[in-house]
Nucleic acid binder design. Sequence first.
DNA 1: TGCCTGGACATGTATAGACATCTTCCCAGA
DNA 2: TCTGGGAAGATGTCTATACATGTCCAGGCA
Lengths: 242, 242
Amino acid sequence: MANLPETAGPLYEKVKDYILDHIGSGAWGKDQRVPSEHELVSMLGVSRMTVHRALRELTSDGHLIRIQGVGTFVAPPKPYSTLIEIVDIASEIRARGARYRADIILLESLQPSQELLAAFDFATRKPVGHSMILHHENDMPVMIEERFVNSDLAPDYDKQDFSAVTTYDFLQKSTPLTEVEQVIAAITADEDTARMLALEAGAPCLLLHRRTWTGSTVATVNRFTYSSRYTLGSRYAPSAFR
Amino acid sequence: MANLPETAGPLYEKVKDYILDHIGSGAWGKDQRVPSEHELVSMLGVSRMTVHRALRELTSDGHLIRIQGVGTFVAPPKPYSTLIEIVDIASEIRARGARYRADIILLESLQPSQELLAAFDFATRKPVGHSMILHHENDMPVMIEERFVNSDLAPDYDKQDFSAVTTYDFLQKSTPLTEVEQVIAAITADEDTARMLALEAGAPCLLLHRRTWTGSTVATVNRFTYSSRYTLGSRYAPSAFR
DNA sequence: TGCCTGGACATGTATAGACATCTTCCCAGA
DNA sequence: TCTGGGAAGATGTCTATACATGTCCAGGCA
C-alpha cells in the first residue's frame, strides 16, 4: 500500500497532497491518466467518498479533468496568465491614506446614441442613466468616470446623491453583477480631458472601458479615464497554486 | 416541510439554490444566521451530508461563512470589483487569427543595477537573465517585452532559443508561478520606444510592470510596453456569482 | 459486414451512522 | 463570587453501502 504524506490535517487533504505531489514531480504528466477512485481506495486504504472528495476539489481547482464513465486525467498546466483586480477608486485612494473627493459634473437621464444602443444591446430606444464624476486624490483630479446605466435595473440612477454615496456602492446594492468585459488602452488626452485632469495637452492617459452584465442584460457601460499621475494595479495570489 | 426549488440537477444543487434564493430575496440578510445543518435536514427532508455539501460549496464560493461550533452566516456581499485576465501575447494574437512573429533584440546575462537588485530582493550581487523581444502582429510591432529572470530558478535563460519557444512557454515550464504583482500605466513613448514600435514621437503607450514569485523568491521582473494600436482586455465571468 | 446490446468499469449522487472538534453556557462546588 | 466541568449543539470528517449515469468494447445476431 502506498503511503500518504505525513502532513497535518484531514485525510482528504492528504489524498489531495498525495496526488499533487505526483503531478508536481512529473510522475503523472499532462493528459495522463490518474488511478481510478477504486484503485486509489486500494492503494491508499481510505474510503471511496474520501478519495472522491479529494478528486472533486482538485478538479474544481483546475488540477484534474474528470469525465464520467471514462476516468480522471491531469489537467494541462495553468496558463501563465494573471489577474488584475481593479477596485473601487474611492477605497483605493483612501487605502493609500490620501484624501478622497468626488465632483459630480453631470447627472441626468438621456436618450442613448446609436453607438450606446448597440453597447447596451437594446432593441428599442429608451432612456439610460448618465453620470460624469471627477475623482480627486488630495484635491488633485486623477480620474474621470463616465457611466451609462440601464434604467430597467437602476431606474432612479439620475436621482441619487452621489456626493453622499459612491456610484460604486449604489450599483453594488442595486444590481447583482454577473459578468464583466474590459478593455484598457493608452490615449492622448484631448483638450477637455486634459483640462479636467489638470494635465498638459498631449499627455498620455489610461482609458478603461467596461461593460457589466446581470444575467444576459447589460447593466452598465463605463468609461474611466485615468490621469497619467495614476497607475492601475494590484497584487493577486492565484488560489489555484499551492 | 419547506419546498426545494424545482430546478433540474442533483439534490445538493437544489439545496444551494434554496439557500441562494433566500439570500438573494433578502429574507436572510448579511451576517444573519442560516438554519443549522440539522434544521435544514428537518426542513428539506434530505440527508445531512447533502446539506453539508451544499453549505460547504456555498462557503467556498464566498456566499456563506461557517464557524465550527458556532453556526453558518450570510457573508457580506461581494465587492464590486473585477478581474482582468492577461494572457500570453503570442496566443492572444494568434487567437485573433493574425500572424505572430517575435524578434529577439537582446538575450544576455547581466549584473543587475541597484534598482533591479531591490526589485529581486537580492541580498548579494549575482547575474540575472535579461531579454528584450519585439512582438509583431501581422508584421506590425505591437509590444516590447523586457524580462529579467532570477538565474537561481532558470539558470539557462540566456541560452534558450526564443525564436522557437516563447519566453512565456519556457518560464511556464521552468518555474511554478505562485504570485503576481502588476502595475499598469500610460506613458509617452520615448524616442527609442517610438522607433521600435513604429509610432510617431509622443504617442501614448501602455506600460505593464510585472513581478512574479515562486514561493517567497522573486522569479521575474518584467516590463511590457504596448503600442497604442494595441489594447489590453478580456472578458471574465466571476464564478462567485450565479 | 454492420449493428446493437449487454457487461465491465468509470464517475456522480445520496444516505445513515459514527466520531471528532469547537464554542457556548449553565450550574455545581469551592 | 468566582471558577471549573460538563452538557448541548454546532460544524468537520470518515466510512460503508446503494444506486444512478455515462463510456467503451467485445461478442452475438441479422
